[in-house]
Design a protein around this nucleic acid. Structure first.
Length: 429
RNA sequence: GGAGAGGUGGCCGAGUGGUCGAAGGCGCAGCACUGGAAAUGCUGUAUAGGGGCAACUCUAUCGAGGGUUCGAAUCCCUCCCUCUCCGCCA
């Protein structure tokens, strides 16, 4: 959520920054609401102060021996009642404006960071780094896509999973299930050794949590919902982890708080019919190990580099070639002010695919979630960052495509062998 | 699902109609004491919004929302949540 003061004092700044996202809005009506709301509040609180004075006078008079039903006291009572009525009227107007203001502010995305490059959509994103040697097919070699390998090796069940749930759900089995589990453990251990505190949070989350991290109110149609309970299936661990500290004041010395959380994630993937229908790339349910920081506002830029580096460390340990893309202003997610996407090389598909997204949200989520830090007498909103470290299914896809061998088996990176119990997936197993 | 208890500041915990934003304690900060520290003592220490250059000041907030009253943490109603016991269950 954006700062109401900024809206009142400098709406042009908001307008010009949102324009960088491709949003062209006239904020003057909203600014007018904000200004009007403040005026009402000022008038109301003056009246309340007057009412408080009258109340005290009555108390003093009665204490001094005046008759509770006497004319003097009665006159004050009448005054008090008159004020009460006026306050009630103002309050009603004020509340209506407040509701409008909040609703509209909650629907506005974060402002892009000054460091985020300008651009309209993903075509304007900038590649900032490449790591590893992308595997290309040798002469006469045909590289399979991961879904082909998976089906051939029996790593998962697709058709039967539709029986259990519906399309875009998958059942991993045998080596596939074991590899998924190995990857989760491997990632958690790696991040744990780099100082992250491991969390296993609820994956049913309430509306306040989704609002706090920015998924509500705008993206309700993207999440699965248990309507009778005001609970939703979390689309990312970012949601429960943000709310872990919702409405808290954290001592500045404790920052940064760095968490790593494994959760299944649930997304409707509305509007993506026909895309990535095979394999592990786009499912309604997938596993993800998420990194999350709460940090002091002054340190968030440096933290962004670090969290991205932590995600990259997983790719490097798994010997997976990747590139780092900086998202342009027009391609940023709702809550993000600056984002690096990591794209892993898929040798079979012959393309880089997103496997991690590392974002700074500034105080956007912290304001929605009321998470502050305190240093001496100063209390201010913290900054939050999140990054996938990594999306597990897509990691498996990359391992399959990049590790495939001429004999049909798949070679796994050495770092994973202790977790998986072997350095190879094979048809025989 | 049945029965009961309770939601007060960063934390614990008093407070049943009138300067109560709230005793006391813990924690934290400053000062004093000390060679230094511990212990001790004193002082300060909630959040949000408005006004003021500032000192400061006004308003709101004791789970949430209504109500009674000149005045509510305190009385009434509704809702939410937490805890304990029993049942059920991995």
């Amino acid at each position: 959520m954006l700062d109401q003061r900024l809206l009142r004092d400098n709406p042009e700044l908001i307008t010009s920054q949102l324009a960088r996202r491709g949003l062209h809005l006239d904020l003057s009506p909203l600014q007018a609401i904000a200004l009007q709301e403040r005026d009402l509040e000022a008038r109301r609180s003056e009246l309340q102060a007057e009412g408080n004075r009258i109340g005290k006078q009555v108390g003093a008079l009665i204490k001094a021996g005046a008759a509770a039903a006497g004319p003097e006291v009665q006159a004050l009572r009448d005054q008090g009642n008159a004020i009460k009525q006026q306050v009630a009227e103002l309050e009603e107007q004020e509340k209506a404006l407040e509701t409008q203001l909040r609703e509209q502010l909650l629907a506005l995305p974060n402002l892009p960071s000054a460091d985020a490059p300008d651009g309209r959509d993903e075509r304007d994103n900038i590649e900032v780094k490449r790591w590893g040697e992308p595997r290309q097919a040798a002469a006469g070699e045909i590289l399979e896509e991961h879904w082909q390998i998976g089906e051939r090796l029996g790593l998962w069940e697709t058709e039967r999973s539709v029986r259990i749930a519906q399309s875009r759900f998958i059942t991993l089995q045998g080596q596939g299930a074991r590899l998924e589990r190995a990857l989760i453990s491997f990632m958690l251990d790696l991040h744990g050794s780099r100082g992250y505190c491991e969390l296993l949070p609820p994956i049913l989350v309430n509306s306040a949590s989704l609002t706090g991290s920015g998924q509500l109110p705008k993206f309700a149609e993207e999440s699965f919902r248990c309507a009778e309970d005001d609970l939703w299936l979390t689309p990312t661990a970012e949601v429960p982890v943000t709310s872990l500290h919702r409405e808290e004041v954290i001592a500045a010395e404790q920052l940064p708080l760095r968490y790593v959380a494994y959760t299944p994630c649930f997304r409707r993937e509305a509007g993506s019919y026909g895309r990535d229908t095979r394999g592990l790339i786009r499912l309604h349910q997938f596993n993800k190990v998420e990194l999350y920081w709460f940090c002091h506002p002054e340190h968030s830029a440096a933290a962004h580099e670090q969290i991205t580096g932590d995600a990259e460390a997983v790719l490097e340990a798994l010997e997976l070639p990747y590139r780092r893309i900086e998202l342009c202003s027009g391609d940023l997610g709702f809550s993000a002010s600056r984002t690096y996407d990591l794209e892993v090389w898929l040798a079979g598909a012959g393309a880089y695919r997103e496997i991690s997204s590392c974002s700074v949200c500034g105080d956007f989520q912290a304001r929605r979630s009321a998470i502050r830090c305190k240093q001496g007498k100063t209390t201010q909103l913290v900054h939050t960052l999140n990054g996938s470290g990594l999306a597990v299914g897509r990691t498996m896809a990359a391992l399959l495509e990049n590790g495939q061998q001429a004999d049909g088996s798949v070679r796994l990176p050495a770092a994973l062998a202790p977790y998986f119990g072997s350095d190879r997936l094979s048809a025989a197993a």
